[in-house]
Simulated scan of single mutants.
Amino acid sequence: MRALYPGSFDPLTNGHLDLIERASSLFGEVVVAVLCNPNKKAAFSVEQRISQIRTATAHLEGIDVVSFDGLTVHCAATHDAGLIIRGLRAMSDFEYELQIANTNRSLATELETIFMAASAHHSFLSSSVVKEVARFGGPIDHMVPAKVAEDLNRLFNSALTPLQP
């Protein structure tokens, strides 16, 4: 079965990559769908995020990286995905994700949502935390794939002295 993993991925974190790898081993084909949201000020363009994800997942088979706007259920239908994957880092994520899953189910009853728990060593990661650490010159190599770290460091090009881990 083909699975859809939607998100903004701004930027892709090692937590996202872990879920992609695990989903790939479970479902074979995973469509990573990068949300194009004009209402949000993204650090990276959709094209940059797609490139980052493709680089980070080059070692995997059955991964397709696409962009979308609009409803996730429409993206799933376009890419013939029968289920949606969502990651949960903490209990606080569950209420929001359950609401979205139920909304999607009301729009497309044939779609299932699968919640995957973040690995413990990635459960603290969020794209916003990673950007904040990078913005202030902190070490991010353990938080994101190498290409993403390079792009973030170039983006923020901080004159700050990086913190020692």
Score class of each variant (00 low, 15 high):
T78L: 09
R135A: 08
I53D: 05
A134C: 06
L71R: 03
V65E: 01
H142G: 09
S67V: 04
V65M: 06
A108C: 10
I53V: 06
R89K: 05
K40Y: 02
A42T: 10
Q99P: 05
T103S: 15
T103H: 11
R105S: 15
I50F: 05
F44I: 02
F115R: 06
V66D: 10
E29W: 00
G82Y: 07
F94H: 05
V32H: 07
I114L: 14
R135F: 00
V144L: 13
R86A: 04
P38Y: 03
V66H: 10
D64E: 15
V32S: 14
R49G: 02
K131N: 12
A90L: 08
R54G: 14
A120H: 11
N39V: 12
T78R: 13
V34K: 06
V31N: 07
I53Y: 04
H59A: 13
I140T: 11
N102K: 15
E47L: 15
L125M: 13
H121G: 15
A117N: 14
E47S: 09
A117P: 13
A134R: 09
V65Y: 04
V73D: 04
L107H: 02
A43S: 12
K40P: 01
T55I: 11
G137M: 08
I84D: 11
F124D: 11
N37T: 03
N104D: 03
N39A: 14
T72F: 00
K41L: 10
T109L: 10
C75P: 05
E132R: 14
M143P: 05
T113H: 08
F115M: 06
L83I: 06
A58V: 13
S119P: 09
C75Y: 01
V30Y: 01
A108P: 06
D93W: 02
V30T: 07
I63N: 09
Q48E: 14
V65N: 12
I100F: 07
H142F: 06
Y96E: 05
L71C: 05
G28K: 00
L88C: 09
A120F: 09
R89V: 04
Y96R: 05
E95P: 01
A77I: 04
A43F: 12
E97T: 01
Q99K: 01
E110F: 14
G137A: 09
V32R: 04
L60Y: 01
G28Y: 00
G28C: 06
S45F: 00
D64W: 08
H142E: 15
L88V: 12
V73S: 08
M143D: 08
E97Y: 00
R89S: 11
E29Y: 03
T55V: 12
A81H: 02
V65R: 10
N39D: 13
G28S: 05
D64R: 14
I63R: 13
Y96W: 10
T72A: 11
E110P: 14
N37M: 03
T72M: 12
K41M: 08
K131T: 02
H142V: 06
R105D: 03
V73H: 04
A81V: 05
A33C: 07
I85Y: 03
V130N: 11
A33N: 05
T57M: 13
S67G: 10
H122D: 12
N104I: 00
L107M: 15
I100E: 09
I114S: 14
N102L: 15
V31S: 07
A77T: 10
E95G: 03
A58Y: 03
S128D: 12
S45I: 01
I114R: 12
